[in-house]
Amino acid sequence: MIEAQMKMPGLERIRARFMDMLVERLNEIDRLCDPAVSGLSPRDALEQVQMILHKIAGTAGTLGLNVLGDTARTGENTIIAFLGSGAPPKEKVYRSVADFILLAEETLDAEKR
């Protein structure tokens, strides 16, 4: 399926745009996760991080980046669970966001090579 999709004209261009936006989105997540910089409460900041992860999870798979999409989805769901019920613990939430950031940086490095 992915192979067929990657043959779609224009998909390489959209993937390149996605990578550009991924850099901006990672910077934004970094900013949001630092209360001193964002000026937001942890809860408000996490809500915005969740929105960013939601968008990435919704598109990465179509662009052939399934693992990145799945990791974003895991991060999103962990935040939703935390905001809804206070569980899992906050450390696990930030761990999940960090997992996504590390993978995204690896993906960007691999794309440059």
Partner: peptide, 16 residues
Amino acid sequence: DDPIIIELLSELLTTI
């Protein structure tokens, strides 16, 4: 609201 989705849909729908 996601520009990537908008681009993907435009491309997909004109292709299919």
